[in-house]
Structure formats: C-alpha cells, structure tokens
Amino acid sequence: MTPGRTLDDRAVKLFIALAAFFCVNAVLAEFIGVKIFALEDTLGMAPLEWNLFGQSGSLNFTVGTLLWPFVFIMTDTVNEFYGKRGVRFISWLAVALIVFGFVFAFLAIATAPAGWWVTAAKDQGVPDYQAAFAAIFGQGMWSIVGSIIAFLIGQLIDVSVFHRIRNATGERWVWLRATGSTAISQLVDSFVVIYIAFVLGPQKWPTSLFLAVSSVNYVYKMLAAIALIPLLYLMRHGIRRYLGDARERELRAEASAD
C-alpha cells in the first residue's frame, strides 16, 4: 500500500474512529466527573439504602460513570481487532489528552476574568462566575492523579486479561473475555481511584468507608458493563459488514497473535 493511500484502508479508518471515540469519552468522563448524581432520584425511585462494612448510603455516583461503560466497550473492541498494541496506544493517548486538558483548565482558571463576566450569570443563581468556573474545572489534584493512575492501570490489566482469556477459549465466547477482563480491571480501578483521592488525599476516609464506596461503585460499573454486552456484539457485526469477512478475520488473527 502506498503512503498516499493509507487512509483509504478501512481498517485504518476504523481504528482512527474507535480511538477518537475512546479518547473523547475518557476525557469527557474526567471533566464532567466533578458532579455527583443521585441514581434513584434520576430514575424516580425511592432511595435504596445500602449497608456495607458498617457504612450506609444511597446510590450516588459521579456522572463520569455514565460514560465509562462505553470506554469499556471501545477497549474490548480495539482489543478484539487491533490487539495489545492498539489498546496500549489509545490508553496512553487518552492519558496524554486528559493531562493536556487539565493543564489548560488550570491555566484558564488562572487568567484574570473580565469584571462584567464575573456577575453575568447572577440572575441564574450564580453570583460569581469565576468561582463557579474554578470549582467545576479546578478539580482536586488528588482526584485527578487518582483517576489517571487508576485508568491507566485498569487499561493495562484489561488488555492482559482479555488476551489470556482469548488464548484459553479461542474465538468463542466474546462476552466472556470482554466481561472477564472488565471485571478484573475495574476491580482494581474502582478501588485505586478512591484510595488515592480520598484515603491518601486530604479527606482521609476511614477504611470502612473506602471499602463500602469502592464496592458500590464497582458493582454499578459491572452491571452497566453487562447491560452493554449486546452493544459489543452489535459493534462486532457492524465492523464485519464494514470491513468484509476476509479483512475482519485477518485483523482478529493479527490481534490474537499480538
């Protein structure tokens, strides 16, 4: 294939699209994750009080968790067709973009606001736009560091477990390698991010609260990942139609041998 025709290759176009969607979801999840939402209120349900490790609470999650299941799907799809190198590439790219985004968010906070802009939204209940902007985009450094480290560790574990299951089962049971790899990687991710952000960080959560909140977050992520298994098969079917049977089999064979 000549260099000028590289982008005519459907496999290359597909990888670019998957990588772009993966990175957008990962970066967006980090930035909107500052908001905590009540799942029961959102669904119009009565509060479900959980009780774990001597702690109790309702189902409150960062809104970033709404996007992470799609990140899992993208990870498994890239794993399936582009192998370990593909997942590692998009994972490091996502981390670089997240860091880049937060650096410029902090630079934006540091710029001097226009006087008229500070009170521009007071009629909407925001008396100080600068303070609101800083509170939303200036997330705690411990949370940022924790989420980035947890994300990267989770991704590297996911790709390894995915291919171990694939080597053991062959091309059968796509759902098993997708769900199995997510189950293990998110077990690590869910506990690492909260440990760094809230145990090592200034809030110094007790062990019981750390274990309870981490466990609830993990269960939520796993239920969401399982619910999206049909989407994984739908994407695989769409990719097969887009690439053609022969090219699709070739990519999966290369990914499996990676």
Rank of each mutant, 00 (worst) to 15 (best):
L231E: 09
W68N: 08
S143T: 08
L14W: 13
N167Q: 15
D258L: 02
D158I: 01
W175H: 04
E40R: 01
S160T: 12
A246G: 02
I184V: 15
L152Q: 07
P69S: 05
G83F: 08
S91P: 07
A183N: 00
V216N: 08
I109Y: 14
I136T: 10
E254V: 01
L67I: 07
A178K: 05
L234D: 04
F106A: 03
T42Y: 06
G140F: 13
I157C: 07
S181R: 09
D9T: 00
L156R: 01
R10F: 01
W175I: 01
L251I: 03
Y233I: 06
L228G: 00
F102T: 10
L107T: 03
D245S: 14
A121S: 14
W68F: 13
R10T: 01
N217D: 09
E40A: 14
L97P: 03
G64T: 12
D258T: 00
V34I: 15
S256Q: 11
F191W: 10
V192S: 11
R236L: 08
A20V: 11
H163T: 01
L176V: 15
V213K: 09
V161Y: 06
G86R: 08
G4N: 13
W92I: 14
V188R: 04
W68A: 02
S181H: 07
I194R: 02
Q203P: 03
V159F: 06
R166W: 04
I184Q: 08
L93N: 03
R166Y: 03
K122G: 09
G238S: 10
I90R: 02
A121M: 14
A135C: 02
L7F: 15
G86W: 04
F15R: 05
S58V: 13
D8K: 14
I148A: 07
A17R: 14
V216D: 02
Y129L: 15
I196N: 10
L228E: 01
L251Q: 05
D123G: 04
K122M: 14
M141D: 02
A112N: 13
V174I: 08
V219W: 11
G138I: 09
A132S: 11
P113R: 12
F104S: 11
P3I: 02
W117K: 00
Q139K: 15
V87T: 10
F81T: 00
V71K: 07
V24M: 09
D76K: 11
P113W: 10
L187E: 04
R177C: 11
K204R: 15
F102I: 11
P69E: 08
T62M: 04
S190Q: 07
F72D: 00
A20R: 03
P47N: 13
F37Y: 14
A212G: 08
R164D: 06
L223V: 14
